[in-house]
Amino acid sequence: MSQILLIMASVRPSRVADQLADWIHARNTLGLSIETVDLRDWPLPMDDEPHQPKQEGFDGYRSEHTRNWSRKVDSAAGFIFLLPQYNWGYPAALKNALDHLYSEWQGKPVVITSYGAGGGGKAADQIAQVCQGLHLEPVPTRPALPLKAAERTDAGRLVDPAAAFAAQAADMQAALGELAAALHSA
Rank of each mutant, 00 (worst) to 15 (best):
T113R: 04
T113V: 05
Y115C: 07
Y115V: 09
Y115E: 11
Y115A: 01
G116V: 09
A117T: 10
A117K: 01
A117I: 14
G118M: 09
G118N: 11
G118L: 14
G119V: 09
G120R: 08
G120F: 07
G121R: 08
G121P: 08
K122M: 09
A123N: 05
A123P: 00
A124I: 08
D125W: 03
D125F: 00
Q126H: 13
Q126T: 04
Q126S: 02
A128I: 02
A128G: 10
Q129K: 00
V130P: 07
C131G: 08
C131Q: 03
C131A: 15
C131T: 00
C131I: 06
Q132H: 05
G133I: 00
H135G: 00
H135D: 05
H135Q: 02
L136D: 02
L136T: 05
E137Q: 12
E137I: 02
E137Y: 02
E137P: 00
P138W: 12
P138T: 11
P138R: 10
V139E: 14
P140M: 10
P140I: 07
P140V: 08
T141K: 00
T141G: 03
T141D: 08
T141A: 05
L145Q: 06
P146A: 13
L147P: 01
L147I: 14
L147M: 15
A149Q: 10
A150H: 01
A150I: 14
A150K: 04
E151Q: 14
R152S: 07
R152E: 09
R152W: 03
T153D: 04
T153M: 08
G156S: 11
R157D: 13
L158Q: 12
V159L: 07
V159W: 03
V159T: 11
V159K: 08
D160A: 13
D160S: 15
D160Y: 12
P161T: 06
